[in-house]
């Protein structure tokens, strides 16, 4: 019996071929801005850490990545005619990478992308099981779509967008999303969706007029951080949800914060909350 067990353990110790083989690769890629007057970025990243920020001045983009070549491939492709940069995991390895996502690789694998400031950017980000830190300070973002799976996303608009953003769409999926100084985005249309997790929206920033937001949350704890000089109009259809409307008054099915008419800036929130909580936190 003892021999049998020793044999078994030895056989088990043979292990999964390639299970623990790390094959780290590093990639750096940068391109001068040259005559490019806009940039469309398509980023696909399934497992690891991803960050986006401004690139040094003469560059159109500046990417640094580290990945485990035994499990995934990162590549980039720039189409000068379409002004499009496609970067991230090869589509053939994306699903596999997510399936075999390991804590060690997730911690050590990363993609840092710097983008040119001063030209309009269309960002199309597809994030899987990642931790994403997106700092759009000093960038000119024309449109932005973020779609994520199980992600911790931290999105910062540190400075005012030079031109209004046409569309900001964030689908947080399962995970948490924190947006700092959303007002700086100057988005003409903002949609925030979350299926399970936490949503933290800071309406601060340098903005005027109305900020329309469509909020669709389910099984989500949502916190709206609103400057005191801003009025809120909430038109949220609730399904077994709690929406904090203390001090609000209702007119025609819309909840208005106290002194709404007197404020010069307004956040107009429309949408739905299912099995969710929506809290309003006033900030000075």
């Amino acid at each position: 019996m003892k021999t049998l067990f020793l044999a078994m353990v030895s056989l088990f110790a043979l292990g999964d071929p390639g299970a623990d083989m790390r094959n780290w690769r590093s990639l750096t890629a940068s391109r001068p801005r040259s005559t490019a007057d806009s940039l469309h970025v398509v980023l696909r990243y399934d497992a690891g850490n991803v960050s986006i920020s401004a690139a040094p001045a003469p560059l159109l983009y500046d990417a640094k990545a580290r990945f485990d070549a035994a499990q995934q491939r990162i590549s980039r492709n720039y189409d000068a005619t379409a002004r499009t940069l496609r970067i991230g995991l090869d589509s053939s390895t994306m699903q596999r990478s997510a399936r075999h996502s390991s804590r060690a690789r997730d911690r050590e694998g990363f993609l840092d992308l710097g983008l040119a400031s001063g030209i309009p950017l269309d960002l199309d980000l597809d994030l899987g099981t990642t931790r994403a830190k997106i700092d759009l300070s000093s960038l000119w973002v024309s449109t932005m779509r973020v779609s994520s799976g199980t992600t911790e996303t931290d999105l910062t608009f540190g400075s005012a967008n030079p031109q209004p953003m046409r569309d900001l769409f964030v689908d947080a999926g399962v995970g948490s999303i924190t947006i700092h100084q959303l007002g700086n985005a100057h988005a003409q249309r903002t949609t925030i969706a979350s299926t399970v997790g936490d949503v933290d929206l800071d309406m601060g920033g340098d903005w005027t007029g109305d900020m329309p937001i469509t909020l669709r949350v389910a099984l989500t704890s949502t916190t709206l951080r609103v400057p005191r000089d801003v009025g809120i109009a909430l038109h949220v259809s609730k399904r077994i949800s709690t929406v904090d409307t203390d001090g609000f008054t209702e007119r025609d099915g819309v909840m208005y914060s106290a002194g709404y008419e007197q404020t010069k800036r307004h956040v107009v929130i429309d949408g739905s909350a299912t099995l969710a909580t929506v809290d309003v936190v006033w900030k000075d």
């Binding site: 590093s26 990639l27 750096t28 890629a29 070549a69």
Partner: peptide
Amino acid sequence: VDGESRSINA
């Protein structure tokens, strides 16, 4: 460098 400057370790 007009094109892309790129380094890969392997």
